[in-house]
Design a binder for these strands. Structure first.
Lengths: 207, 207
DNA sequence: GAGTGAACCGGACTGACAGTCCGGTTGTGC
DNA sequence: GCACAACCGGACTGTCAGTCCGGTTCACTC
């Protein structure tokens, strides 16, 4: 949406703004690769994006992609981290409803709704990220951050529950392929309501 | 466990017992392939099982594997269907707690516990199946069967909920990689309790 | 128990892809 | 303007899913 969303690699301090000592050509290529990846994800399905194609679309060699991101997994992790950067900042700041000033329940619902936003705009990325990470999905920094956040809120709201497990379940609602099916008809309202109802049942005032 | 569990391909009417017109050598190879797949899954991780290795371990050519099962996906689908056959039968019969004689809530909890049994004994298979199916996971006959069953029970127990969504969430607890992490310490009791608590919150007497 | 044809076998082959490597190039600090 | 470290890119490798077809084996008949 905003320029930070389309201008790959510019949204976060860590990912975007010129890194210490990074050469100009390196920074330029990094941005080109992220942008090309996103475009290919939007055009083709998440699974038809090979690194050869990414490199070609970005106008760089394959070696460059690997030097920048280490692996296919690393590329999608970096891209997801970039797209999730604003959310990351929002939950660390104070401003309600996402930030530390909000009430736990309000924060949780706002966070899940923000995830739905990300899913709505970057569904292919989420799907590609899951596939690329494979068994390491739960080790991905972005996922871990989300899980830690949700766990903490659940723990606060319902001390009796297995907060870590419940947090995984809430995040499971955003499985890329599942979301794609649930919203295949374009009805994101229903999905958002289902997620909110789920959260209500799990940590709401019930009991 | 039982002979039907170790003797791959013998557990179900559809998968095992000599199919109409199937030649003896074909049946023998089918069994050998399923058994070899399971052994490799147990030995190596779910992701180091290539079809070349399966074919070699089964003592057949690669072409045979593909003629039997169509694709990598088909192989793991067939193996999972085979391992889930007893559960499938149990929920279609009458005997409580799984069958139609049981109360809905009792049936649901028993079903989830039975899934935990399968997960405990065939975790690598579940993980391999998920990866192999990829975006088609939700189209897999076994998953669809489980989902239909859970959906129906949820609909009966809590008409107000989005039963299909809730059913997906309950089944999400059995994601292979997630289960592997949650039970990495060998404590399956905790996992089972968490799943039961989850079900209680979602469809229990609350409200 | 020999003959016959259809079903089946298996391994060589293809195409695609992730990841590596190194000779050549470019940017940056002095 | 110079020197060298950092960076570039495309050719190369190894692996894997899936295909293909000449040769073999089974089941059925007489």
């Amino acid at each position: 949406m905003s320029e930070a969303t389309t201008e790959a690699g510019e949204a976060t301090t860590e990912q975007g703004a010129a890194r210490r000592g990074e050469r100009a050509d390196a920074a330029r290529n990094r941005r080109a690769i992220l942008r090309a990846t996103e475009e290919l994800l939007a055009e083709c399905g998440a699974e038809h994006v090979s690194l050869d194609r990414v490199a070609a679309a970005a106008g760089v060699g394959k070696g460059t992609v690997f030097r920048r991101f280490g692996s296919r997994t690393g590329l999608f992790q970096a891209l997801l981290a970039d797209r999730a950067a604003r959310l990351r900042e929002a939950i660390d700041e104070e401003a309600a409803p996402l930030g530390t000033d909000g009430a736990p329940c309000e924060r949780l619902l706002a966070f899940l709704d923000a995830l739905a936003d990300i899913a709505e705009h970057h569904l292919s990325l989420i799907a590609a990220h899951e596939r690329a990470c494979g068994e390491d999905k739960f080790d991905d920094p972005t996922y871990r951050g989300w899980h830690a956040h949700v766990s903490a809120l659940v723990r606060e709201l319902r001390p009796g529950l297995d907060a870590e497990f419940v947090a995984h379940m809430l995040l499971a609602a955003f499985d890329g392929e599942l979301v794609r099916r649930l919203t295949a008809d374009g009805d994101w309202t229903r999905f958002r309501r289902s997620v909110r109802d789920l959260a209500d049942l799990l940590v709401g005032q019930g009991k």
